[in-house]
Amino acid sequence: MAKKNQQRRADPGHKQCPLCEHKAKYIDWKNYPTLKPFVDYFGNIRQRYYTGMCLKHQKMLRTAIERARFMGVLAYRK
């Protein structure tokens, strides 16, 4: 069984949540450096599948990014 596990590639669907590591309770829209890695070149929010974010944090991230976009901190579209 161990051999089988070694051969299998890491499933991108089973990553650790990058914000659960810091035990984030709230994502601030004013904190640009934390939001930036979760936005791609075109200004879209990165999918949960690729970042490994948990659903709770993804929802918080979405509100934070939308607020930041409204205030002109992040772009809607590049």
């Binding site: 309770k25 709230y26 829209w29 004013k30 904190n31 607020r67 409204f70 205030m71 002109g72």
Partner: peptide
Amino acid sequence: LLRHLIVKPPKDYQVLKYSDQ
């Protein structure tokens, strides 16, 4: 005034000055 945004910060929210951050 271009934009304004009113947000309810969570319980025990720590204010971090932008310059410090």
